[in-house]
Amino acid sequence: MAFKAINPERNFWNRFLKENNGSFLQSFEWAEIKEKDGKKVWFFKDENEKGITTAQFLLIKDSFFYNRKEFFYIPFGPVFRNDLVKKEKLSDKIVEAVKGLANEERVVFLKIEPYFSGLSFEKPMGVIKELKRIQPKRTIFLDLEKGEDELLKSFHFRTRYNIRLGKRKGIKVLRTNKEGKDFNFYLDKFYSLLLKTSRRQKFNIYSKNYYQNILTAFDQDFQSELFLAEYKKNFIAGSIVVFWNKIGFYLHSGSDYFFRNLKAPFVLLWEEILEAKKKGCLYYDLWGIDEKRYPGITYFKKNFNGEEREYPEGADIIFDRKWYYLYKILKKVK
């Protein structure tokens, strides 16, 4: 069989992902978030001779070079059936399925960043090792099946000290979602923290609407909440957490450097972990570490002493070599 573009029903699409440990970045809700952000999305699936789904992926059209050129992107996909043995046979099927659409949409290349190992592409098809990733290459997972005391004891002693210090100083944590009272007020406070953090650490952030879209994508499968640390009526740290398939994801965060001595991010993350446990999550994903690009936040996350995991290497499948060469230059400059 071959991958075909489909218009799936939400529950049907998400059920396959959840049964086969797929990422929330392949979810129906993530597709809606991207559409609200102005991106075009497509759903593809492959079936065997018996009509059973063997794999599926969400395809997103994104842009570069000041939005003048575009590329296709498969974030943490495709997702395979857990019992599928020869996954590599589907690799070239993905390219074949996307080729025609790539011509229609005039995209420069297809970027694939897999969540699972098993993909293997033929070199003559214009496949090269990926350049800079969009999603993190490495991350840290915390095991939430441990009891609360055991989990706390597993942290670095400085982390335990900072959590207790922040609480003694009077740090309070509140959480809200799209149904919460004064949601827009809290969203504004969070975005202000992101702006401060991005200026301090020199990284780009999205528009406020993008974070709002994540927080309003709330249903039985995909839940998102905003956590804020408060000190004497000042909001000094905040983060967006996504809950998906019994995993909590520490997706976006920011803090106010002026209040750094209060250790609010430590208290905040600990309260998020406890909330994830209450929701029945088995793991908490700290969502990306990189000592070279983000030394500060990586050091912070490593102090929680979780299990480090590395995702498989991705690939860029080139459709337009001239513009891809420009893309390479732009990535080297950044």
Rank of each mutant, 00 (worst) to 15 (best):
V85S: 13
L144Y: 05
L58W: 06
F190E: 06
Q212H: 15
I273H: 01
L262Q: 07
S224F: 06
K132S: 13
D290A: 03
K50S: 11
K132M: 13
D149K: 12
N261R: 14
R321S: 14
I52F: 13
I236H: 01
N303M: 09
L228H: 08
S23I: 02
N213R: 05
L174W: 06
L165D: 11
I289E: 00
I60R: 09
A55M: 01
L268I: 06
T197D: 00
P75E: 08
A97T: 02
F183W: 00
F16H: 07
I94F: 06
Q26S: 07
L194Y: 07
S154A: 10
G100K: 10
L165G: 11
V333F: 13
N20R: 12
L269G: 03
I297W: 02
Y327S: 05
K146M: 11
A102T: 08
G100Y: 07
K93R: 15
P295E: 06
L274A: 06
F155N: 03
I240M: 11
F121Q: 08
K169D: 09
K132Q: 13
R68F: 09
L25N: 03
S224A: 12
G77Y: 00
F235N: 03
E150F: 08
L326I: 07
V267Q: 00
E122Y: 05
A31C: 12
A229S: 08
I171C: 04
E271L: 01
G170I: 00
L152D: 01
D188L: 14
R160Q: 13
E122L: 09
K169P: 06
E307L: 11
L262I: 10
L282F: 14
L174S: 10
I6R: 04
K111M: 03
R106V: 11
E19G: 03
V107T: 05
D320P: 08
R260D: 04
E272N: 09
S117D: 14
L326Y: 02
R81D: 10
M1P: 04
